[in-house]
Write a protein that binds this DNA or RNA. Sequence first.
DNA 1: TAAGATACCGAACATATTGTACAGTAATTT
DNA 2: AAATTACTGTACAATATGTTCGGTATCTTA
Lengths: 177, 177
Amino acid sequence: MDRRQKKTRESIFKAFSLLLETNRYEHITVQDIIDKADIGRSTFYTHFETKDMLLKEVCHDIFAHIFDNELCSYKGDKNDLQSRLAHILWHFKEIEKEIFGILASASGDLFIGYLKENLNLLFKMYLADFKTDVPADFLLNYLVGSFCETVKWWVNNKMTEPPETVANYFMAVIETH
Amino acid sequence: MDRRQKKTRESIFKAFSLLLETNRYEHITVQDIIDKADIGRSTFYTHFETKDMLLKEVCHDIFAHIFDNELCSYKGDKNDLQSRLAHILWHFKEIEKEIFGILASASGDLFIGYLKENLNLLFKMYLADFKTDVPADFLLNYLVGSFCETVKWWVNNKMTEPPETVANYFMAVIETH
DNA sequence: TAAGATACCGAACATATTGTACAGTAATTT
DNA sequence: AAATTACTGTACAATATGTTCGGTATCTTA
């Protein structure tokens, strides 16, 4: 890839990331981004169709990074699940400031959407050999959704508790399944 | 209240409601609303500061209606909770078409926000005399969040299952607390 | 290192939406 | 019947979006 392209992309991501530390996603304009990235208007649009597409790529990168080798080696038992969830939370803690800007907005759904997609795979394996009295997709949706709510709760609490503790809480409330 | 004001408000609500049946909230513009309601632009703004304020009022009305005498008489036991949750779902079913337009958008959070507010009261009573090993606010958040996820799941499934069944599922998965 | 390809610049433009202002008209209240 | 209040509709400023295009800088490759 052309060094110039790489540089502009980097500067856009960087600017976006910085803006997310102090602004909610929905209030950030393309103008803000190109000002901070110090690039031409048309340049932005050759790289990204819309602001949403930019966010989408950012989310994609984040989750590609987090769930990289997370899933392949999953053993499927409870302890393993718990440590993996804690691990995910650790990654979120790393990009704490961006997460605030992304989540604290109506469009936090986009981020949560990606999270759910990835969690689905994880929990699907966890539930593989379970018999239940409720529909399987309801149960899956419940577990994934509950963990997302846990994440949001944690973020709203400024991520004060250690990831392990939060994962602990979560496992405790869903324990019976 | 002046008959004219009442009429205009009604026509705005009606137009908004109709638009929600075929469009997502975020894609509806003030222009769309005043066209459909057949009122002047300035008239809209004398009634509502922004589109969000309109949605807010609509949500407020919906939940004022649903949770009216719902809470005062709450007995606090499991069966009672279940039937109340089912009752809430019945109300949602009544305004099915609007719900789709509201929920199927990034700003569904506003609606969900109201739902959570009201559910908080309900579940707080339910949890009043519980001892747990996880923080009380985590547990409360978990229950409220899980029910919201249940609602979303149900809506995404076109509300096919009867409300009682869905409430049943929900009680089943949170049963241990 | 010269030539061609590619990416960026920046300014201009069309379009859409928002929210405000104001003078005129109609309905309602007292 | 007079005074108040609400609606109309047009116009306007402000902001944001997404596109276009000629010119310039930077890369690649032959």
